[in-house]
């Protein structure tokens, strides 16, 4: 995958499609399955991840020349954890309802392999400007997968979209769509379709 250093906006763009963390690298799957039954929760989760990614990539990149190689992973986890706790505190203070619904998932941003992957794989070796764009790209790439899945799961499962009723109430709700297994189906189908597109593009 490494075709030499990728800089600036290219670092952002490749994360959206070519090396999309969820589709291309199958990272961050756990949260993709867990939170996508409500569009609102998904949006908050995506914003949380984008924030964590940008800030962690920036911090790690700024410190990249002083972090001793031996402890770099510990320092990365520490930095990511600090930002995640920050998000959790802010959500508790200003959006308690959403914080309650998201439950442990906010804390679990830290275990989202995308963040660790980007800090270790890119931010440790690149300038802050590129690292931030790379982090932003990875975050948006993640959201581009999660949001469409949530937009399918919520209306079919609960008949609502962003909490508003969009499907007539006599519609039989697909309870399956609300629970985690449907996340597997939707995600798998999504990845299948996208990869089919990708490979047909490559052949040409």
């Amino acid at each position: 995958m490494n075709k030499g250093p990728v800089k600036g906006l290219d670092a952002l763009k490749r994360m959206l499609w070519e090396e999309n963390p969820v589709i291309g690298q199958i990272l961050g799957i756990c949260s993709a399955l867990a939170v996508t039954n409500l569009v609102k929760n998904t949006l908050v989760m995506c914003l949380g991840l984008i924030f964590t990614l940008i800030m962690s990539c920036l911090t790690v990149s700024l410190m990249r020349n002083v972090i001793p190689r031996r402890v770099r992973m510990i320092i990365q986890v520490l930095i990511i954890a600090a930002y995640v706790i920050f998000i959790k505190i802010v959500l508790d203070a200003f959006l308690p309802e959403i914080s309650n619904e998201l439950g442990p998932y906010v804390g679990l941003i830290i275990t989202n392999c995308i963040v660790m992957g980007r800090t270790e794989g890119y931010a440790m070796a690149n300038k802050p400007y590129d690292a931030v764009l790379d982090g932003l790209g990875a975050g948006i790439g993640y959201s581009l997968v999660l949001l469409p899945i949530a937009m399918i799961r919520e209306p079919l499962g609960l008949g609502t979209f962003f909490g508003m009723q969009v499907i007539p109430t006599d519609w039989t709700k697909w309870n399956m769509m609300v629970i985690a297994p449907s996340g597997f189906f939707c995600l798998a189908t999504y990845i299948w379709i996208v990869r089919a597109f990708k490979s047909s593009g490559e052949k040409r």
Partner: peptide, 23 residues
């Protein structure tokens, strides 16, 4: 390495607890 780790940990712990006590 040890000193660096201690300083960084102390810094981030301080930041997080600061925000926590404010909110």
């Amino acid at each position: 390495t040890l000193l660096f780790t201690i300083v960084v940990t102390a810094f981030f712990t301080f930041m997080v607890s600061g925000i926590n006590s404010v909110l």
